[in-house]
Amino acid sequence: MKPTRAIVITGNGTNCEMEAAHACRLGGFDETVIAHIAEILSGEIRLDDFHFLNLTGGFLDGDDLGSAKAQANRLKNAAVAGGQEKLVDQFTRFIADGKLILGVCNGFQLMVKMGMLPGFDGEYLHQTVTLTHNDCGRFQDRWTYLKTDSSSPSIFTRGIDRGLYLPVRHGEGKFLCDSDAMLARIEGEHLAVLRYSDAGYKEATMEFPANPNGSTAAIAALCDPTGRLMGLMPHPEAFVHYTQHPRWTRENLPEEGDGLIFYKNAAEYVGKNLI
């Protein structure tokens, strides 16, 4: 059987490529490659050879024009060496091929600013939502409780019981839509996969610090209607083993961290559908 292959794109300020690749391996991918954007633009590495694309956390171009803006511009406009193709063509083909993309933190910001999410009506290059400065005006590193929408089509969160406990580490995580209709459609189609909530995962919350950024409707994650593309501000790759939990010395925790399920689900989906 062909191997399941994950790719993690790095370069220009991504920071979480190591732990994202580690999570892919733990999740069950046969092969995981950390590819520098230079190696993709030079044509050495092609997205077509992979099934699962990770856009990881970091500070792409320093977030200098707003988080991930410069990279969104680069991906849309940069050409791949040795052919007629633009890099964005590889992305749209990847999506059309029914493959998986997970954007975490800066990767989520990149996905919304490229227009890949929410991806209504097959439109993956038109921005309709955004992620902007936290209401508190500052970067925050803190752990958050995330209530799952069990009706969401996201393939990444399948099997999650009530919710997840994961860290956020961002200055621009406040989710906003361009219109109330957009928000209604996102909520109506259950695309708001995760919401910041109380510790019991009962109610979504707008209270700081449980909701660290003031996101509309406490939205922490978003998927497209196919469920194959997902972005989230919290970091699933940062909690794949119990020693990463802030209270592991005082709570009896299982070996695996809450975030690993994203990568297990991705590997399982790829194995069943794309091989």
Partner: peptide, 11 residues
């Protein structure tokens, strides 16, 4: 809290 103390996953 303004400093990312968990990036790289080893904390």
């Amino acid at each position: 809290r303004r400093y990312d103390h968990e990036v790289q996953g080893g904390s």
